[in-house]
Amino acid sequence: MKKLFTSLLALSLLLVGCGGNSEDDGYEVALVTDAGTVTDKSFNQSAWEAVKAYGETSGKTYKYYQPQDTDKAGLKATIAEAIDNGAKVVVTPGFNFTEALMESQEEFPDVKFIAIDQSDLAPTSNTVSYMFAEAESGYLAGYAAVKEGYTNLGFMGGMAVDAVVNFGIGYIQGANDAAKELNTTVNVKYTYTGTFSESPEINTQAKAWYNAGTDVIFSCGGGICNSIFSAAEELNKATIGVDSDQHDLSDTVLTSALKGVTAAVREGLEAYGSDSFQGGKVITLDKAGDTAFPGRFANLTEADYTAVKGQIEAGSINLLTNKDLDSSNSAKDPSKLTWSNVTVSFE
């Protein structure tokens, strides 16, 4: 028995040895993931796809690091580990990184950082920060839903963080403008669930909304979509997805308000590769904000959709964001803004 164990131990050591790092200079391009994995159909996966694609085309070595703890200390340690492993550019997707990156960017001035979606970050000269115009894709989603013929809309956000609030306000504004064009009025139910994962509470609330007449709910917050999609499937109603195109997750998904994480990471890495890295800058990618069209729309015409999209791209619509909310509005309640054709009920 002892002999067997010893030989197994030796064999496993041998196998581990084979799997080790054969690169001498480590991995140049590193992705540190936020909570979740690189197969989360969301932030991490989008970022990883861009890193992989860049690595393959440029021939540079690349690797992802999944932190054991996603608190500030855990993220900082993982960033340091990636740099220790030879990383010269580190991609950090998600607002969760803000505090860790504030310190890491100063500790490692020779390393370039690409920050994704971190509104509170003040980038130093070795960091470029990418933000998204969530209000744009939210606007398109709301506009499209009303043009499709829905007059009872719902919005469920994960938590009242800037990105979610921007999606929500854009959604209402889009619905408002479409209602104005159609000379009608629209009701929007609006809530923050306080979590980014599924729960029976969210399922119950979504069903209650649908039963009270809501036609379509914009599910804006990671895993809560599981409970909202399940409610919509049961009652045969519609939903709108978020971040990535979620139409294959459920037949109820009308369209998805997209966030161009892949495009942002690609742009950042290419700038790094061509020595045009814009350190210290905050770049808002507006054209990356979009919805998945044609989705499952039946009544919305392509002409209508491209017309309004063109207006957004030309900047002729003054989009509201979380900054337009009163600073005393700590609940981030958009019903406090004035809407001409929309009645917002905030729960």
């Binding site: 994962s197 599924e198 729960s199 029976p200 969210i202 399922n203 895993g223 599981n226 409970s227 999609f229 399940s230 499937e233 049961e234 997750l249 459920s250």
Partner: peptide, 17 residues
Amino acid sequence: IYIIPISTEYNCTVAGY
């Protein structure tokens, strides 16, 4: 019985139930 009616995927959590 908890998870079936409320979701479309399972992430190994029952939310404290």
